[in-house]
Each structure stands twice: as C-alpha cells, then as structure tokens.
Design a protein around this nucleic acid. Structure first.
Lengths: 320, 320
DNA sequence: TTGAAAGCGTTACCAA
DNA sequence: TTGGTAACGCTTTCAA
C-alpha cells in the first residue's frame, strides 16, 4: 500500500534511522489505515527476543506477592515487556516444570521468587538459558541477579523495639526451615538477643508453616513450653495474626500482657485489631528493582549490580 | 542424531500417530540427550497459536483479584496455556493499549475483568481479533464470553439478613457509578428494599470510590444526612471496613448499634475486628470458569455457554 | 511410515 | 536510502 518493500516497513516500525522522512510517513499512514500490527511471534523468531518476562512466585494469593507483581509489571511495562505469571505452590517439581517450559525460548528472563531449587541447578539453568533474578538467596554467578531484603536488620529492629517496651523473654515464630528468608530472620533474631544479652534457649525459636494456623498452633506450643515468654517476633504478618488470635482467646491483653511483632507489613496489618506492629518490607520496590536488574542483564549479562538491597523499617502500631 | 528428518521429529513431539514406535523411541532418546525443547515462538509462528492467554485486571493489588488470577492460572495450566498479566488501573486508555498490544498475535484469548471500554468497541475488537471473556457485563456476541456474578441475589441476601436483625433504615455504600458490578449490586439493593417495603430515599444510596477511605467518608456523609440509618450494605468488603472504622471512631457499637455487611468476602474479612459479615463471591471459581469458557472458545468460537453464572452466599460473622 | 518443500511474518545482511 | 535474499525453527501439505 505504501509502495515499498517489507524491509522498508520494518525500518519504519523500528525507526532506527536510515529511512527518509517521506517514506516513513507514507509507511506510517498505510500502517494506520490497515490497522497493521507487527506479529510478536514472527518478530520473536527473527530476533530471538520476545520482550517477555516470567514471574514465578509461590502463590499470588499470598498477600506478599501481589504488590511485588505490581512492581514487576510496572517496571516491565516502561520498557515494553510483557509478564507471564506462574505459581509454584512451593513445589520444587512444579518449579522445574515451569522453568523448563520457559526454557523453550518463551521469555527473555525470569524472576524467581521463593525458589526451592538448589543453587547449583539454578546456575546450570542460567548457563544454557536465560538470566534470572532470585530473592533472598546468595548466588554469585553471571546471569544471576540477587535481591536481598535486609532481614537481619529487620529482626534487630523488632527485638530492639520489644526491649524498649520492657520485654526480656522473647520468642520467635520462625517460618519453614527451608525458606532462606525465614533463616535470615531467625539469624537476625539470634544476633539481636545476643547483643542485648537477653535470655535465650534454642527452643525459643519455633518453626512452622507461615500461615495463620501455623502462627496459632506454634504460639500455643511456645506458651506451654515457655510461659516466661512475653513477646514474639513472627516470621511474617500472617503468623503474627495467628499469634494474636491465640493470645486473645486465652485472655491475654495485647500489648499490655503480651506483645507481637510481625514482618512484611502486608496491607491487612494496619486493619486488624489490634493493628500489627511490624517490619515493613517495600514489596513494590522488591518487584520493581528486581525487574530493573533483570532487564539490564537481558541487555548485557554483566550489567546487574552484585545485589539489590532492600531496606526495612519498623512500623509501630498496636500489637507491640 | 536420531537419523530422521525434522518432520519425523515434529511427529514424535506432537505424537499424533503416523510414526513407528521404534523411530518414536529413537527420536525421544535424542531429544532427551540433547536437552532439546521445541521453540514456543517458532511453533507459534507456524501454527498461529501461542497457547497463551492474557489476563487483564484493574489492579492485582486489589484483594479481589489474586484469587481470580489463581483460578485463571490453574485452569490455563491444565491445558498447557501460559498466562500474561496486566493492570489497567481502571484507565480506559491503558486498557486500549494493552488490548492492542495483545492484538499483535501475542495471545490466543483474553480475560478482561473490570473493563472500562464500551460494548461496541469490544465487539469490534473481537471481530477482527481473538475471543474475549468479560466479567459482569452483558455482551451477547460470538467470541465474547460472559461471567456473571449473581449480584442481585447477593444484595437481596444482605438486606434480608439485616431485616431479620431488626433493621429498617438501611443505606448503601455504592461503588463507582461506572462499575457494572456496583450498579448490579445497587439494583439488587433497591429491589430488596422494595420487596420488604422498607423506607427508601434516593440519597440512601451513596456512591464513592471502592476504597477504605471511600468507605470512611461516604459513611460519614450518610450519617450526617440520614442519622436514621442503622445498617449499611457496602459495595465491597474494603468499603465495609471503612464504614466500620467510621462507626467505631464515632463510638457506635457494632453490631448492636450499627451493622455493616460487606461484599466479596476477601481474605481479610474474617480477620478484622469485628469480623465482617459479607456476601461471598467465589473468586477462584470466577477465574477458573472464565478460563474454561475462554479455552473452549479458542477451540471453537461458538463453544462458550451464553453465560457462566457464579452463585453467591451470605457469610454471617460479627459486623451484622 | 517417512521425507521434501513450502510457508508462517518478521529481521539481518549485503548489494544496489 | 532502499530492496533482495536468506534466515529464524517450527508445522502443513503432499508425495514417495
């Protein structure tokens, strides 16, 4: 319709110069009139780039991840990238399936949050496939980006706050032992207790599933074994909510008799009663900066900074 | 490596018969050893099908949508489809951008939730593009699937419950006037008041943004204008939470003096204090069945049933 | 049961 | 500044 070769049309669309303003205009007109849209697929085949990212999370229904996803989407969108979403349900097998289905030249890069797969395997994957960004794991390897939440500092902030409120016997509702984030928060908790020379026994740290119910039952156990404990740091807000429920049904007043600090500051934390004192993690930023890191690696594998650090903040509300 | 033509390899991969068990095995062995994965992109170009869906929501951060998304993912996954996620932020312009970027042969079908685009435009889009499923909109057109939540029944259930609790003056915190779901819930509210011959004024229905803050301020207004109102039906749980907050800061006891019923039954509704009495919408089912409908249309445009109906249920907790 | 050739819609490379 | 030709990696069609 514009009377030019398809090559010229290609030049017009991608406008990387080398085309006269006149033909450019003619081509653009034709494109408009025809409602022509270049095929993403054909382009992908020709360039070996799809401008597509894969976002892999344990469960988008987990209140931590929607905001992360939003950050990813927004960052991806500014560069014209599309985002695939996947849920692993914490299953390593499912994670493998997803990873290897993505390996079929579907995406240019992957955001892998809450991964269960071993470091070595991830390295191998990256070697003959595409760049990857992981959350809260330390894997130094070209093609692997890291986003690290300052979990150590977060746990310390929480403990310090509790100490200031006069608590001496503090327990921790740890998450799953397989979760690196949980292990980091536990480490921070340990350090902080030691720094303040607070009483400590190994059994002050009680691991469990990072759910409401997990929080409830672990709190009961801890209460039975260590009635001296008056304050709890939870692996995440959901567990903290469970702890609050247990304390309340047992008749404890919060925060006067028992105190609970959560972690993450999910949206609900401000709306419960009592509202949760917690360590805020900027989830949107996690997603946004992870994506920036990934995109820069897609341009050039050596580009991503060694690690993206995400700060953390104490939010004082009512539960402590 | 298997000593056969690529055609035979193709046959082996797609195993639609016409291949001897022996060669099949030889090919499969080679595939395994080489770690070969057929290119999604090349396949898409050849078949004009990407086995990919687009999920468009206002905001994945809105607690209604993660569960919907999960339903979509799960349904898509059973058929080997991948899912793109997009946020419109309720902007019609952004919605257009997304739709037309998807029109570049990227996806085989689209799930459009919370759309702001006019019916006619959607029909036009479907005509020269791909099938589409919409939520809570009535568009009868080949290639358009509908998922309809029974908002009318939901509002009736809520009003009946309030009446049973002795309320006569009932107001409604409506959502945005542009939202079809909100309008349906308002219509159900109107009907129910009429059925029970309850007092009604047009200003008993107060529209506002479907946010916590919207709920708060609309409740204040309503309280000032109509102090006789003792019970509220909210467009969604978030607004209901806002209403609860306003009532509590004003010193009303809930549910003794003032009652609030929400809508949707988002995850948080059970965890607030008081826990929210609400109308449950099975969000996972919305996503799952919408996707089933879409997938059947992708196979054959005439396949989707005229409308997928999603039932609704009264969940009695503490706020009413 | 297998293979050869063409085609899917773009971009890359080189020549004009 | 433009166009011709050859990829890109599959599937489809038809012939052997």
């Amino acid at each position: 319709m514009a009377g030019v070769s398809r090559q010229t049309v290609s030049r017009a669309i991608n406008n990387k110069g080398e085309i006269s303003p006149l033909t450019l205009e003619r081509v653009m007109n034709a494109i408009h009139q025809l409602g022509y849209r270049p095929s993403w697929v054909a382009r992908g085949l020709a360039t070996q780039r799809t401008r597509t990212l894969g976002l892999v999370v344990p469960d988008i229904t987990n209140p931590f991840f929607p905001e992360v996803a939003r950050g990813v989407q927004d960052a991806a969108h500014t560069q014209g990238y599309h985002v695939f979403l996947y849920n692993t349900d914490e299953s390593a097998e499912r994670e493998y399936q997803i990873l290897y289905s993505l390996a079929a030249q579907l995406v240019d890069g992957i955001l892998l949050f809450g991964s269960r797969i071993a470091d070595a395997e991830l390295r191998a994957f990256v070697e003959h496939y595409r760049p990857l960004v992981v959350l809260n794991r330390h894997i130094v390897h070209p093609g692997v980006g890291m986003v690290l939440v300052d979990n150590l500092a977060g746990a310390r902030l929480a403990v310090e706050h509790l100490v200031r409120r006069g608590h001496r016997y503090i327990g921790m509702l740890a998450g799953p032992l397989t979760s690196p984030s949980s292990m980091q928060r536990v480490a921070g908790f340990r350090n902080a207790l030691a720094e303040h020379q607070l009483p400590f026994q190994e059994s002050y740290i009680a691991p469990g599933p990072p759910t409401l119910d997990g929080g409830r039952t672990i709190t009961e156990q801890l209460l039975r074994r260590h009635p001296e404990i008056t304050a709890l740091l939870a692996y995440n807000d959901v567990m903290a909510l469970g702890a609050v429920q247990t304390y309340r049904t047992l008749g404890y007043r919060i925060p006067e008799q028992r105190a609970v600090v959560g972690f993450d500051d999910i949206w609900i934390a401000a709306l419960t009663h009592p509202a949760l004192t917690t360590i805020r993690v900027n989830k949107y930023e996690v997603g946004y900066r992870a994506t920036q890191c990934l995109l820069s690696m897609i341009e050039d594998v050596t580009q991503c900074p060694p690690a993206v650090e995400i700060g953390v903040e104490l939010v004082i509300r009512e539960s402590a």
